[in-house]
Nucleic acid binder design. Structure first.
Length: 877
RNA sequence: GCCAUCGUGGCGGAAUUGGCAGACGCGCAUGGUUCAGGUCCAUGUACUCGCAAGGGUGUGGGGGUUCGAGUCCCUUCGAUGGCACCA
């Protein structure tokens, strides 16, 4: 409840004598009129806006320049939180600004509405996921509308509905057709709480991204993968061109993709001493190394405990098996604790040897707990003299340490024959390396890789940390994977004409016992399209990140039932001009959607290489220094803020309290300040709009600067300075907090001129023009109030089609400026000069200044520095 | 361990290119309006010495470049985020 409501009570006070009551009534009705009541203003405009659904629709065949501004679509969890409000307030301000600048703006919204919370809700409240989700969407959509966000709702996308997810299935068939979707049995991440598989990107510090305290385990499952690695190199190189993306995000993606150039080298297992044949692991240990130049210093080969050759060797050796199992357990617990980096290195010799193909030397084969099966080949050559880890390991197990590289430098002092070990530098020269001795490291790497390839025992190669994207989920509430399994024909894709594969309803959902769809016989049992015989449907569903990988294309053509979208239409709108969302998606969503764009481009559907030209990642909304959370009890509800202060205040405060890329610490007293400010604007216009009605000239042009009295001229100057500050920020750094404060300063100047206005020293047509400009400046940030005041000023047209105020440098210019005078860099005085005073005039004035003369008395001026329009600095001795 | 970002009043923050540190807002103080409270209006508010005029100090710490540094460089400490025996 707004606290102002209480004042009503005093009006009807029975104690007051009749006369007093009359004057009281007048006074309070004046106050009534001047009072800013956000609920009244916002309800009025909310209702009007609802009557015109096309108000913020993008124009389909426009000659205007397009602008596509997009905020990341939310998951319909039930209610908006302040992070959403902040995200959308940024996008909405930009969209409104671009409209006022004459662009054809596409500003859509949708729902990332598949996902596990709907299933959990189903289990807890016995509500079907679909019902729960659609109810949440309805609620959040109402919240968004009440907040006044200007979306084109005719393009709304809801990913859990068949008209959307059928295209996920269609894309899956294309991926399969192009060999980019494949099925593989492999070890996968398993979250016991979600009861499903997770992609690598969804594992954070060994825990589930949704359950930060739940350790992710491993399971071996048959899964569908998307070959993201096919585009690894392009995804990496493309980052260099994404100049409009935050450097932070580009670095994170670079690290995630983790490109590493090196060499594969095959070490043949030597079975001569105890030949029993080779197991499924084969007879060759392929190692990956970035430093093949150090291979003459390799004194052992180290295998990951889960390496297939280890399994072969251990099969015949129960003692080794037990020791290896111990290593596996150590590695696993270190991974789960998130400190694989600090694992105490342990190893076991296998008793076997491998042959270094470069020198024919036999080196022992070990198994070690610090070698990871999922990077490189799961095997390394150990070079203790030139690698920290190998050095530590060799010292522990008394393995030979052989120096093969010594530092070289232009400075002979630094070229030492016995560097401290391990020496890991690249600026070195090979020794003890046969015919490669004397070569520089980089040269040796090239020559040795070439030889390996020539002789067929290795080659130069590139390894990525990025893995293929496992998209199978053993969950119900997701897109069914359109695949069939036929005893005769094996894996058979559902024919395109049979799409969509509809997700059945009334499914028994539990978090145990595998995919819920597997318990629906009507769904599982199908007919093989090839042979007509019985077939089983795939019962896993797709990762929800598939949904969000391409949704922004659907907005351009949201009702197409023949294709995901029309390529021509997409070409008009794409790439997205500005994408806005949380940095938590820097890797997950933003890598997947970049991949998807490249895939669609190669299908010939689109022509752009990247989804978004510019990306903006906003900071989190926190309270009392901590992330808002129910358990901390520091959650600020948008509904409550709207009820208490209004949508305008809530939105404007979320822009004002911090620059948008930084975290925002929510303070209730801060939003009160914004509400006060909006009230000040409201009262100013209420008071002065009536005076201009009588002047009868609402269309007056800005008057000439020279014809204005000083107070009016000061207003004009401030207005144009404000226009510049706000416009510049929209085009540049997006520090909306300073935009808002600039508008506050303008309003403060207007209040400071109240007396002059009362004395008619500010011409009414000019004042009307100032107010119109003020309202337009406010429009992107506080649309409700801006519309109300726009109407109050006698304007009829749509505020957001009104052209954005034009900045006039001549009108913004100060006539007189104050120049600070420093002596030896310390501020001593200030002089007032005309803005176009020459250097000589300014210096003369500075030297004539009393304080300056006192400060330099008896000293000699060594140097006079004048920075035009900025300052004077006198250097004295 | 590596990489990135950030350290400014009681608080959120400003200073866009090396040029008046603390804009704007919150809070607080004083005064006005009011029967009163709230609202609203006005003034003040970095620290410090001083009755004042005026002086000194000050952007995490230390050093440097410069006529001049919150801003650039080196170093160090701290916070946050990402990556991490990645071979």
């Amino acid at each position: 409840m707004p606290p102002q409501e209480k004042s009503e009570a005093t009006i009807t006070s029975a104690e007051a004598p009749p006369l007093d009551r009359a004057s009281n009534d007048r006074a309070s009705s004046d106050r009534q009129e001047e009072r800013y009541d956000p609920q009244r203003v916002e309800t009025k405009w909310f209702e009007r806006w609802q009557q015109d659904p096309a108000l913020y629709a993008a124009e389909p065949d426009s000659k205007k320049k397009k602008y596509y501004v997009l905020e990341m679509l939310p998951y319909p969890s039930g209610a908006l939180h302040m992070g959403h409000v902040r995200n959308y307030a940024i996008g909405d301000a930009l969209a409104r600004y671009m409209w006022m600048n004459g662009y054809n703006v596409l500003h859509p919204m949708g729902w990332d509405s598949f996902g596990l919370p709907a299933e959990n809700a189903a289990i807890q409240n016995n509500t079907p996921p679909r019902e729960w989700t659609l109810r949440n969407i309805a609620n959040m959509k109402a919240q968004m509308k009440r907040l006044g966000f200007a979306y084109d709702w005719s393009r709304e996308v809801t990913t859990c509905l068949p008209d959307y997810y059928r295209w996920n299935q269609w894309f899956f068939l294309k991926l399969f057709e192009k060999g980019l979707a494949y099925r593989k049995r492999s070890k996968v991440n398993w979250c016991p709480k979600c009861a499903t598989v997770l992609a690598n990107e969804q594992v954070v510090n060994g825990c589930c991204w949704r359950h930060e305290d739940t350790v992710v385990g491993q399971r071996e499952l048959e899964q569908w993968f998307v070959r993201t690695t096919k585009y690894a190199d392009e995804l990496l190189r493309g980052l260099d061109h994404l100049q409009g993306w935050p450097e932070k995000v580009r670095i994170m993606q670079r690290n995630w993709i983790g490109r590493s150039e090196g060499t594969l080298v095959d070490f043949k297992l030597d079975y001569a001493d105890n030949h029993k044949g080779f197991g499924p692991g084969g007879s060759t240990i392929s190692v990956f190394t970035t430093r093949v130049d150090t291979i003459f210093g390799a004194t052992s080969v180290q295998l990951a405990p889960e390496h297939p050759i280890v399994s072969d060797l251990a099969a015949a050796n129960p003692d080794l098996r037990a020791k290896v199992d111990q290593l596996i357990a150590e590695q696993r617990s270190a991974k789960e604790a998130g400190d694989i980096g600090e694992i105490e290195k342990h190893g076991v010799p296998t008793g076997r040897y491998a042959i270094n193909p470069f020198n024919g030397e036999k080196v022992p084969v070990w198994v070690a707990n610090y070698i990871l099966m999922d990077y490189g080949t799961g095997a390394i050559m150990s070079v203790p003299a030139h690698d920290e880890r190998d050095y530590e390991f060799a010292r522990k197990y008394k393995l030979e340490i052989r120096l093969v590289v010594i530092p070289i430098s232009n400075d002979p002092e630094e070229t030492v024959a016995e560097p401290p070990l391990p020496y890991v530098g690249h600026e070195g020269m090979l020794i003890n390396s046969g015919r490669y001795s004397g070569l520089a490291c980089d040269d040796a790497i090239k020559k040795m890789s070439a030889l390996a390839e020539e002789k067929g025992f290795g080659k130069a190669t590139v390894t990525y940390r990025l893995k293929d994207w496992g998209i199978s989920r053993q969950r119900y509430w997701g897109t069914p994977i359109p695949m069939l399994y036929c005893e005769k024909d094996g894996i058979v894709p559902v024919p395109e004409k049979d799409l969509p594969v509809i997700l059945p309803e009334n499914v028994d959902i539990t978090l145990t016992g595998g995919s819920p769809l597997g318990r629906v016989p009507e769904f599982v049992n199908a007919t093989c399209p090839k042979c007509g015989g019985p077939a089983r449907r795939e019962t896993d569903t797709m990762d929800t990140f598939v949904d969000s990988s391409w949704y922004f294309y659907r907005y351009t053509d949201a009702h197409n039932d023949r294709a995901p979208f029309d390529g021509k239409i997409a070409q008009y709108w794409f790439p997205i001009d500005q994408y806005i969302g949380g940095v938590e998606h820097a890797i997950l969503h933003l890598i997947y959607s970049r991949f998807w764009t490249k895939f669609m481009r190669d299908l010939g559907m689109i022509t752009n290489d990247e989804p978004a030209d510019r990306l903006f990642t906003q900071g989190m909304v926190i309270k009392d220094g901590a992330k808002m959370s129910k358990s901390l009890g520091n959650v600020v509800s948008p509904d409550e803020m709207v009820a208490r202060y209004g949508a305008d205040a809530a939105r404007m405060y979320s822009l004002f309290a911090a620059p948008p890329d930084r975290d925002l610490d929510w303070q209730d007293t801060g939003i009160e300040g914004i509400q006060r400010f909006l009230g000040r604007v409201y009262r100013f216009v209420v008071k002065n709009a009536s005076s201009l009605a009588s002047s009868g000239s609402p269309q007056a042009k800005t008057l000439e600067a020279t014809s204005l009295q000083p107070k009016a001229r000061a207003i004009q100057r401030k207005l144009h300075q404000t226009i510049k500050r706000v416009s510049d920020d929209f085009q540049g750094r997006w520090h909306f907090n300073t935009c808002v404060s600039a508008i506050m300063e303008l309003v403060n100047v207007l209040y400071g001129a109240e007396e002059a206005i009362a004395q008619k020293k500010v011409p009414a047509p000019f004042l009307a023009e100032v107010q119109r400009n003020l309202v337009m400046l406010l429009a992107p940030f506080a649309p409700y109030l801006a519309h109300e005041l726009w109407e109050m000023l006698g304007e009829k047209g749509n505020l957001h089609k009104a052209p954005w105020p034009k900045y006039d440098a001549a009108l913004a210019k100060e006539e007189e400026i104050e120049i600070p005078v420093q002596i030896n860099g310390k501020l001593r005085s200030r002089v007032v000069v005309s803005a176009d005073a020459t250097e000589n005039t300014v210096l003369e004035r500075a030297l004539a200044d009393e304080k300056v003369r006192a400060a330099i008395a008896g000293k000699q001026i060594v140097k006079k520095i004048y920075v035009p329009g900025k300052l004077v600095n006198l250097v004295v001795k």
